[in-house]
Design a protein around this nucleic acid. Sequence first.
DNA 1: AAAATACTTGACAAATTTGCTCAGGTATTT
DNA 2: AAATACCTGAGCAAATTTGTCAAGTATTTT
Lengths: 149, 149
Amino acid sequence: MLRLSTRGQYGVRAMFEIARGWPHRPVSLKEVSRRQDVSVAYLEQLLGKLRRAGLVVSVKGPGGGYLLSRPPERISIGSILKELEGPVALTACVQDPRKGCVRVEGCVTSLLWRALGQRIEQFLDTITLADLLNTNALRRQVRKEAQSA
Amino acid sequence: MLRLSTRGQYGVRAMFEIARGWPHRPVSLKEVSRRQDVSVAYLEQLLGKLRRAGLVVSVKGPGGGYLLSRPPERISIGSILKELEGPVALTACVQDPRKGCVRVEGCVTSLLWRALGQRIEQFLDTITLADLLNTNALRRQVRKEAQSA
DNA sequence: AAAATACTTGACAAATTTGCTCAGGTATTT
DNA sequence: AAATACCTGAGCAAATTTGTCAAGTATTTT
Ligand code: FES
Ligand code: FES
C-alpha cells in the first residue's frame, strides 16, 4: 500500500544527479539517463514540470543541461514530489472537503488520515537534496527520525 | 500522492462499525452499508479478506454478521490495511530486493523510502480500533504523534 | 551558414490498477 | 420451507500509470 509512482521515484533520482553538478556544471538528461537507467523521453516529461515549478533552470545547447535553481539544502524531497505527484492526500476528503463521506456524522477516520498525512509531509519536507549528497548526514538524519517516531 | 485506495478506507470504516458491536452483537454488512454508504457486495469482498486473515469472525443466519476476533485495542489500523492493500512499500525495491535500481551503486534514495515506510508503519500500528471508538483518546494520541514528529 | 547538442511541447497508447457489480452458492434460524 | 446473511469467483468499465514519439526551438561550435 501507499506506493510511490515511478514519476516521483525517478524525479528524485534525477534531481539527485542534477544536484551533483551544483553549482556550476549543468547536467544533461543524457547523463542522468545513463546513470539512472531511465529513458531521456520520460525524463524530459518530468524535468519539464520541475523546471516550470522553478526547482531547476535549463541551459540549452552543447554542454547544456539542468542546474538547481537554488542550493541543494533548500530543495526538499517533498517539494520535488509535490510537483510530480501533487500534494500528500491519503483520502479525497483531505484534499477536497466537499468529498467527505456521506451519511456519516463527523467521520472518525478522517482525523487519522489527516494526521498521518501531516507526519509524512513533515518528514519529506525535512530531508533535502543536500542530505542525499552526504549519505553520512542522511543516515544520521534517518536515525534521528526513526527514534522520535 | 500516496493515496490510500477505497479498499483500505472502506475497510477501516467497516471495521469501525463492527467494533461498535463488540463484544456481543454481530454487525451485518447490511447495517455497515447503511451507515457508511458502501455497497454490500463490495463490503463482502473486503470482509472476506479480513475474516480469512483472522481479524473478524462471521456469524451466519438471521441476526448474524461479523464480530471482532479480539478486543478492539488489539486490532491496529495497520493490520487492517496490510490485509487489504499489502504491506507498506513505497517502492518496489523495498518489498523485493531483486527489483532495485539497476546501474546504480548503492542507491541513495532507497534509504529514504525505507525510513519513511517504517515511520508510516509505526504510526499505523500504534493506532487501534479502540482509539477510533474513543475519539477523545484519539485526539490525544494524534496530538502526541504530531509533537514527536 | 551548417551541424551538432540539448531542451520543449503535446499527443497518444499499452499496461496496470481501481472500484466496483453480478450470479450463484452455503449455513443458520424461525 | 422461508428468510436472513455470509461466501466465492468471475468479470468489467473507468481511471491511472508508465511510458513513447514526433516535431519543434534555442545555443554553441566549426
Ligand atoms: S470524511 Fe474522509 S474518510 Fe470520512
Ligand atoms: S534501489 Fe530502490 S530506489 Fe533505488
